[in-house]
Design a protein around this nucleic acid. Structure first.
Length: 483
DNA sequence: GTGTAGTTGTC
DNA sequence: ACAACTACA
């Protein structure tokens, strides 16, 4: 008997672990572990848990069509998986477990720990590198190191793409059944989550709809992507991130579809298709960084000199940011979109991140954690990479003296205030042209708005931020001179 | 060593 | 111009 252990690869198409298990010709069963205490410590968003739960129902049906029963178990943490899985292997005489590697440190340790345990038994753990199109550590520069700057990484990645076949693999053929599998297939579904859930029903979860969306995006919408993607009022992005985050679709499927619709996507002539390919490569870049630098998973900034920055610990200001009550409409509208829908437009993620770090001087990790707790597409590597970039503490981060001006960003990317208006109903009475800075208008009119005044002066906050970074930098230089 | 370049900007 | 460093070929 073979066992497929599903984690963040909740699909039957282009799933190498599943395909390899089916190749053997033996009966196959599958398992999913809910780990609510672990998820809580990772701060996983309840809405993402709900998306996973719904996806498992679909996956269970898709697997059933292949004669594979999907078992479901709840244990507290990753380490509690060990005894459960060992028992399962013994009970069903599992010769091989197949799964796809995750690259976060806790997940790597989970797999190492179970591999150690199983090495004392007759079960073999087969872990495949299939989360990225190219395995982390395998895209390297002339010196044999992994890339720490995006553009050279992207160049090398595309060059490699032209040499290697990375076509997705299809759904495997149905496998043999034995009496054990027969009995398991007849049992009613036991998928029931203990983790707190939030409604994700606005996101369709069946394969046909998801793949249709991917196809429609690559066929009809990607052309507009380059011109429109930065405007949060326009639904120009692919909206595929939640599905990539839980592995309902794979990057290979995305790439294959993009390429079949846009053969010129590999270079700049591909326009929007090329820009979207870059986003897929960003996803790979941050996965590779996470895999190669375990400290990333321990909350460390990649630029270690930024460790000496003393952040602002003001919980009240942090609460204002979380609630979307900072007095900067673009920031507040964005935070409310996050709070109410579990998703935020990427341009806005940069704006609110910059605001938290460079205007409120609050530790970027607080923001990173809050994002994870709300985002339906929460992915450790992508979220961490984005925050480190915004906070100027990461690989290839934006320079620390480059500080987003929230009002300028608002005027540039929400010029007709359609996005702000959608989310800030208390500003209904404010005319369009005043909506980027409503307090100015209200003061002139002598009106009291049911909306806060800006909680910081951006100009002064910007200077403080830059000097905080300069101080940390000079400390590093002093230390260097001493050693 | 030497040259080039670095997502998303602001003043 | 900023401000100055680093990654990479």
């Amino acid at each position: 008997m073979k066992l497929v252990w599903f984690r963040r690869d909740l699909r039957v198409k282009d799933n190498i672990a599943l395909t390899e298990a089916c190749k053997s010709g033996e009966p196959v069963m599958a398992i999913y572990y809910e780990t609510p205490i672990q998820w809580k410590s990772h701060g996983m968003a309840p809405i993402q848990a709900d998306l996973i739960r719904r996806r498992l129902m679909v996956l269970q049906q898709d697997l059933e069509a292949l004669n594979i029963p999907l078992l479901f178990r709840t244990v507290n943490t990753f380490s509690d998986i060990n005894p459960s899985l060992a028992q399962l292997c013994q009970q069903y005489q599992i010769a091989d477990i197949y799964c796809i590697r995750d690259h976060e440190l806790d997940e790597v340790n989970r797999d190492n720990s179970i591999a150690g345990l199983l090495s004392l038994t007759s079960t073999k753990l087969n872990v495949f590198d299939y989360k990225c199109i190219f395995p982390p550590g395998s895209v390297i520069n002339g010196a044999g190191n992994i890339y720490r700057v995006f553009t050279p990484f992207k160049k090398a990645w595309i060059a490699r793409l032209q040499r290697e076949n990375v076509a997705p693999i299809g759904t495997p053929e149905p496998v043999q059944i034995n009496a054990t599998v027969q009995a398991l297939l007849k049992q009613p579904s036991s998928i029931e989550f203990h983790y707190h859930q939030d409604d994700s029903v606005g996101w369709p979860i069946d394969d046909n709809t998801i793949i249709q969306r991917m196809r429609d995006f690559c066929r009809y919408r990607v052309e507009q992507y380059e011109a429109s993607r930065d405007f949060p009022a326009i639904p120009a992005t692919s909206q595929l991130s939640p599905y990539l985050a839980i592995g309902a679709i794979s990057p290979r499927q995305c790439l294959a579809r993009l390429f079949s619709e846009n053969q010129n996507c590999l270079d700049k002539s591909g326009g929007g298709a090329h820009v979207w390919l870059s986003e897929l490569i960003w996803r790979e870049f941050y996965q590779h960084i996470t895999a190669s630098y375990p400290d990333i998973s321990k909350g460390k900034g990649f630029q270690s000199w930024t460790d000496s920055i003393t952040w602002n610990g003001d919980e009240l200001q942090f609460a204002r940011w979380k609630q979307g009550r900072t007095g900067f409409p673009i920031v507040d509208a964005a935070m409310r979109q996050l709070n109410e829908t579990g998703w935020m437009h990427n341009r806005l993620r940069m704006i609110v991140a910059s605001f938290l770090v460079k205007d409120l001087h609050i530790d970027w990790r607080w923001g990173e954690k809050y994002f994870m707790s709300k985002l339906i597409d929460g992915d450790f590597a992508a979220n961490n990479g984005g925050w480190q970039w915004s906070a100027s503490v990461g690989t290839d981060a934006q320079p620390y003296f480059r500080v987003f001006n929230p009002t300028a960003q608002s005027k540039k990317f929400d010029p007709n205030v359609r996005f702000i208006r959608r989310w800030l109903k208390e500003l209904e009475s404010v005319p369009d042209e005043a909506l980027h800075e409503p307090y100015r208008w209200a003061e002139k009119q002598g009106i009291d708005l049911a909306y806060p005044r800006p909680i910081v002066d951006h100009k002064a906050a910007r200077e403080t931020a830059i000097s905080m970074f300069e101080m940390a930098k000079s400390q590093q230089n002093t230390q260097r001179a001493e050693s």
